[in-house]
Each structure stands twice: as C-alpha cells, then as structure tokens.
C-alpha cells in the first residue's frame, strides 16, 4: 500500500511540473516523469509474491510467475514514449528557432 502511495506522489510531482513550469524543457521532463510513474504503477499492480519472471528456461521446473500481460502493454508504452519525446524535442527546437526563447509565456505574447 505504501509503495502505491509513493508511486502516486511521483505522478503528482510530474503533474505539478506540467502545471506550473513556464519553460519548455522542464515541461518535457515533467511529461517524462508522468510516463515513468504510470508505467511503474501498472507493473506494481502486476507483481505477485514469491513468483519469478515470465520466461521459461531449460531444465527448470514450473513455478508461479508474475502477470505477463501488463508487462507487454508497458513495453509498448515505453517505445511510444520514446517517439513522443523525440517529437516534443523537435517541436521545442523549432519554437526556439522561431522565438529565440523557451519561455511559453513569451511565446504566447510574440505572435506571428
């Protein structure tokens, strides 16, 4: 239970960054923290006591394994996160080229 709460605090830290930071790099980093927290929370829900990783190996007797389904979903999610991070970085670099600043309030003011 305390593990879940700590992971939830990590998610709230990411949310705080997205809501209050004004500069684009910090916003990208906060989105990354949000992603980490959600992925970790899913895997925490899947863990089962006294069980091993879901990979069979030669000459080992069958023992209880952890749930492989959330792991498969999170694997997909991590790779998509990589793509979106690349896209966000490209957007930020392009905005910097146009307005010469990373501050979003400045960007909002300087239209056109």
């Amino acid at each position: 239970m305390i593990v879940y709460l700590l992971c939830f605090i990590l998610l709230l830290v990411g949310l705080y960054g997205v809501l209050t930071k004004r500069d684009l790099i910090k916003i990208i980093l906060s989105i990354g923290i949000l992603g980490y927290a959600v992925n970790l929370l899913l895997i925490l829900f899947a863990y089962r006591n006294n069980s091993i990783y879901p990979i069979l190996s030669k000459g080992k007797e069958i023992s209880p394994m952890v749930d492989p389904l959330p792991q498969a979903l999170v694997l997909t999610s991590i790779v998509i996160e990589l793509g979106t991070t690349a896209m966000l970085v490209a957007l930020a670099v392009k905005l910097f080229e146009k307005y010469n600043t990373f501050d979003i309030t400045e960007i909002r003011r300087l239209k056109g």
Partner: peptide, 21 residues
C-alpha cells in the same frame, strides 16, 4: 523499424543548426 527510425531522428536533429536570428 525501431533502430532505423530512432537513428534517423537523431540524424535530423544533429543536422539542424539554429542560425542566430
């Protein structure tokens, strides 16, 4: 797929030079 696309993203980013406006 994953290898080529990730390499090409950094390739494009590395070639992108910001000229001082």
């Amino acid at each position: 797929k994953v290898g080529m696309s990730l390499f090409l993203v950094v390739w494009v980013l590395a070639g992108f030079k910001i000229e001082k406006g």
